[in-house]
């Protein structure tokens, strides 16, 4: 092979391969030191901790990892990423896994988190910006969590913290087209 020949693109059908294609990460670089989990503020609530999710990706346990609710507890605070000794970037990995899960089947995400993300994206798609009152109402309808936090809204209104009408931007069609273009790239609809 001469030097000018392109390197053949290695098609790796495994979950690590898919993650590599989506995020550029090398999951094999993880040596399971657990520093990500040790510093994770949500680890205590996660059925599987970040290093265990990573291990499952290494072991190609696609279904187990994509259906794990721990994915949806990650706050992307990047503590893991900034301290990872091997620069594996667990936060980016979890984002990638959520994206794959959302593509495969949005119901893999727990109802409340799914409802929140969908309601949030819906706000952007419809108005170009997030209209908080609309977000809250939409979230409550989507999640069925009608009574949670019901006591906060009056306080927020009282303090002028909630706008009553959405603020549509001029370029909202532009934003909607960005959504559509991204859906085209992903090959499916972004649930919102």
């Amino acid at each position: 092979m001469s030097a000018s020949e392109p390197v053949p693109t290695h098609h790796d059908p495994s979950l690590s391969g898919e993650i590599n294609k989506l995020t550029g990460l090398n999951v094999a670089a993880c040596y399971q030191c657990g520093k990500c989990s040790a510093g994770c503020p949500m680890a205590a609530e996660m059925p599987r901790k970040p290093h265990q999710l990573l291990r499952l990706v290494q072991l190609n346990q696609r279904q187990a990892v994509l259906s794990d609710s721990s994915l949806w507890l990650c706050l992307t605070c990047e503590t893991c990423t900034s301290r990872c000794p091997n620069q594996v970037d667990p936060a980016r990995l979890i984002d990638g896994l959520r994206e794959l899960a959302f593509q495969q089947d949005p119901t893999l995400a727990p109802l409340k988190q799914r409802a929140f993300h969908q309601a949030f994206l819906h706000q952007i798609k419809s108005h170009g910006r997030v209209f908080e009152l609309g977000l809250v109402v939409d979230y409550k309808l989507k999640s069925g969590a009608l009574l949670d936090d019901a006591l906060q809204a009056p306080g927020m209104l009282w303090r002028g913290k909630l706008a009553l009408m959405p603020n549509n931007i001029e370029g909202k069609a532009e934003v909607r087209r960005i959504f559509e273009a991204c859906e085209h790239v992903a090959g499916e609809e972004i649930p919102s």
Binding site: Q32, G34, K35, S37, A38, G39, C40, A44, H51, Q52
Partner: peptide, 11 residues
């Protein structure tokens, strides 16, 4: 703030 990957518990 550490972890024990063998038990999966943060320590």
């Amino acid at each position: 703030y550490g972890t024990d990957t063998l038990s999966g518990e943060n320590i």
